[in-house]
């Protein structure tokens, strides 16, 4: 199973990219564990997570080809 992960704002500095693909990650909880281990700086930032453009507050089970985005606090205007 493959998922796409998008990073925005200050998080692009923490992971030094704006997108990546991951395999065999099945939930938001699991994704966070994996990302925090790989990019410790990421854990120092606040962010929300969207799955297919919808913000998910709790844990969430992914499906193949889901688009996950890590969204730091919005700053439009």
């Amino acid at each position: 199973m493959k998922i796409k992960i998008l990073f925005f704002g200050i998080l692009t500095d923490a992971v030094e990219t704006d997108a990546m693909e991951m395999e065999n990650i099945y939930s938001i909880w699991e994704l966070k564990q994996k990302l925090f281990a790989q990019f410790p700086k990421l854990a120092t930032h606040n962010f929300q997570i969207s799955v297919n453009k919808k913000i998910e507050k709790g844990d969430f089970l992914f499906q193949h080809k889901d688009e996950i985005a890590l969204l730091p606090p919005f700053a439009g205007g």
């Binding site: 925005f8 704002g9 730091p72 606090p73 919005f74 439009g76």
Partner: peptide, 26 residues
């Protein structure tokens, strides 16, 4: 409308300073 845009629209800003450094607005 303006208040809702500021609160809910996924847009981010990277502010560039006159010495070449930058910071992200959070």
């Amino acid at each position: 409308s303006v208040n809702l845009i500021k609160a809910r629209i996924p847009i981010w800003k990277k502010e560039l300073l006159d010495d070449g450094s930058y910071f992200w607005t959070e």
